[in-house]
Amino acid sequence: MNSNKILILNGPGLADLSNCNEIGHDNLTLDIVQEKCSETCKILGLEMDFRQKDDEAELLRVLIDDIDSFDAFIINPVGHSHSSSINQDMYSSAINKISGQNKPVIEVHIENIFRQGKKNHKPLQALGSSVGFVSGLGMYSYVLAINAVNKQLNNN
């Protein structure tokens, strides 16, 4: 049996996590997050592709072009799923398409985006879709999301 492939997609600015004061790691970098994800996927027998894009259009392009190549998606859109109404529409339609194919999709954030001072961070809007949401567990947000996708893939 082929192993399931998941895409972990990180949005603009996430290459530098030095402003993130979150639990789980004092000097968190995206490399450490990637390593943790790769370790978690390995244990579960999942194939993983981990990417980060600073350009929002490029990120959405990856998402739209590669929908058929992956079985599940974990997305950290930072605050950019709401940076413009066009982005919001493109995110919604991509998420709706993934969800319509009955593939698991989970939105993750390293920090709790509802804490004060994070006004620009709003959850993805994709009405009628089924999207998981994990925020504020540091790099463990990704670990929880990977475990959850794996469970969903096994249930399907």
Partner: peptide, 21 residues
């Protein structure tokens, strides 16, 4: 805004995922 972490939309499996972590 009063908690450390938010987990949603994972169905009833969300409970065991959180406890396990």
């Amino acid at each position: 805004s009063a908690v450390d972490t938010i987990v949603a939309g994972l169905g009833t499996d969300g409970y065991s995922h959180v406890i396990e972590l």
